[in-house]
Design a protein around this nucleic acid. Structure first.
Lengths: 167, 167
DNA sequence: TTCACTGCAAACGCTTTGCATATGG
DNA sequence: CCATATGCAAAGCGTTTGCAGTGAA
């Protein structure tokens, strides 16, 4: 119960932030927008637009792709969602509130995304901002690597058959 | 003359590397492939597929987009070219040989790409590789930021009119 | 001669756009 | 009420694919 109470608290918090943002920008507080926000904050994983869209369909919530894209733009703008491009042409998103700052390690074999943290990145970021006279708004650090493969040719991390994909 | 001698030396070196790679993989050494390699190593800037394609057309070198894509895959595979996705759906490429390792700062306003270097990234990379049991093959660190704007509303770095683009 | 490579154009897949309809303020 | 959002479908656009013709080995 503890866990779901936490989830609820987070959902309430982001709902408040989004409401405030929409009011400030004089944008409409439509049910679709809050349904999308809620869906995103129902899980921690990275997701792409199609996955989110299908998930909402499966929950019998009728939204169009256009609205999903539109709402994601708003959520990006108010910082509740982060957008990634892990080397391919499918944008990946993840929730940005109530979760520690982190970066990503992407498996060359199975494309699985892992997270890690290193304070030095923040240092580099602020140092380079000062040096080049920029206000750094965000960053993206991705490490790409191959895990060791066991004798059956399976990834030692995800334990799946290895099928190498092009970058 | 010094400068162009350097360029020539680099071009010779990459031609040798590519030749060796193609022979090792028993791929054909077609004139198109070498023309594309040469074109890429004629300038240091980042480029996208369309730019490269048009550039070759302008030099009256007849290549198809398909061949450009195909060749870029080969050049990526043998490490002579690096691919980037600076937050948008257009893949950006740059030469990878004879140029110091660096990362990028992208201007939120004009999308201009700047380069910087920090040894701590290498440290983070190898540390995380060890920690997560991965052989890190490469990384991508992008900082995104906004420059200060002068009183005419122009970017203080590129001095162009600011037109904010969506992430 | 042979088969991988090229050029061209059509297909693809993610994203954006246009327009009629619906609805929040 | 009316300006803005939504849904749907079509258009956009970078990239991939299929196929007939070409040329490296």
């Amino acid at each position: 119960m503890q866990k779901s109470a936490e989830v609820d608290a987070t959902k309430e918090a982001v709902k408040r932030i989004f409401t405030e943002y929409l009011e400030r920008k004089t944008q409409r507080k439509t049910p679709e927008r809050f349904a999308i926000l809620d869906e995103i904050y129902s899980k921690k994983d990275h997701f792409d637009v199609e996955t989110l869209y299908v998930q909402m369909k499966n929950r019998n919530y009728r939204v169009s792709r256009a609205t999903v894209y539109n709402t994601l733009d708003l959520l990006l703008d108010c910082g509740l969602v982060i957008k990634h491009q892990f080397g391919k042409n499918i944008a990946q998103f993840e929730r940005a509130y109530g979760y520690r700052q982190h970066d990503h390690l992407i498996c060359n074999m199975c494309n699985k995304v892992m997270e890690f943290c290193d304070p030095r990145i923040q240092q580099i970021q602020s140092m380079m901002g000062d040096l080049l006279h920029f206000n750094i708004t965000h960053h993206s650090l991705n490490l790409y690597g191959s895990p060791k493969i066991d004798k059956d040719g399976k990834c030692m991390n995800c334990h799946k058959e290895v099928n190498i994909k092009k970058q």
